[in-house]
Amino acid sequence: MKLRPALFALAATVITAPALAKDVTLLNVSYDPTRELYKALNTAFVADWKASHAGDSVTIRMSHGGSGKQARAVVDGLPADVVTLALAYDIDAVADRGLLAKDWQARLPDNASPYTSTIVFLVRKGNPKGIRDWGDLVKPGIQVVTPNPKTSGGARWNFLAAWGYALKQPGGNDDTAKAFVKALFQHVPVLDTGARGATNTFAQRGMGDVLVAWENEALLAKREPGGDQFDIVVPSITIVAEPPVAVVDKNAAAHGTTEVAEAYLKFLYTPQAQEIEARNFYRPRSPEVAAKYASQFPQVKTFTLAEVFGDWRKAQAKFFADGALFDQVGPGN
């Protein structure tokens, strides 16, 4: 006789459950080496959302690829609910096609970049060539490996870091900066199309004396087999690389996922997420978490893109457009 109420209750749950607990799928279109980062973040967010929303379950699908290529895919119809790319220019391009508001970067704190990285040098063990700063890269006999800024969004930050360094030297101006990056690219024997390719060229192929890289990728490379053969050198001044995130309004509205998508991005700023980001070698925005991971992220003097270059549209037009500065000073000229 006890069975009947139990069965009744079970039937009731089965019938009403779909109405109560919603099942949502989000597509996060991200750039390349963020797989482990988002794997951890997604697990945390899914649990968090389930706890705070009466058992609603979220499934987060990931897409990874070169930042520019991913932006093109979203423009061409890849149904991304959120984009988490390497540079704001790529999200601007999506916004230009009307998929999200043009002021997207103001909608979240810190330029919509919940985590940052910075540009550092990877050198061979013991730093045999004595490389301490940007100026050492243009010394005779030094070979520098860096990917092509024309094909790698990440490498554009490298270029801007070098430019900013030259500008900030005593008497620095556009002309001295131009001369410096021109000299720098004379020392580049191989221009890989992506950051990972450049790291491989430096680490596995033994090319060059120094790799200019994002700090998180340098730390990833050090974790690979044979990674103990390298040291990280932090230059006197460098740029803050800000990989931004945004909800793709139009897609999210069409999928009915706006609320979850917005919550997902806000979640990236929570202490729990900041901790995960730090563990995955990104510099957290939260001062508390940053203090906890201080040994992993050495103190470095930085400048932001906004301080030196205004915004990404300006930087892109001035340096990386067809026939712009990089085409004039890059290697092969």
Partner: peptide, 29 residues
Amino acid sequence: VSVVSGHIRGLTTTMPLEVEMRYNEYNYV
């Protein structure tokens, strides 16, 4: 294939695309 796939993991990723993605994630092996 890489242009038309969208690289959605577990859904539209073929073996060569999975190779490329893993390589780019510093998962050489």
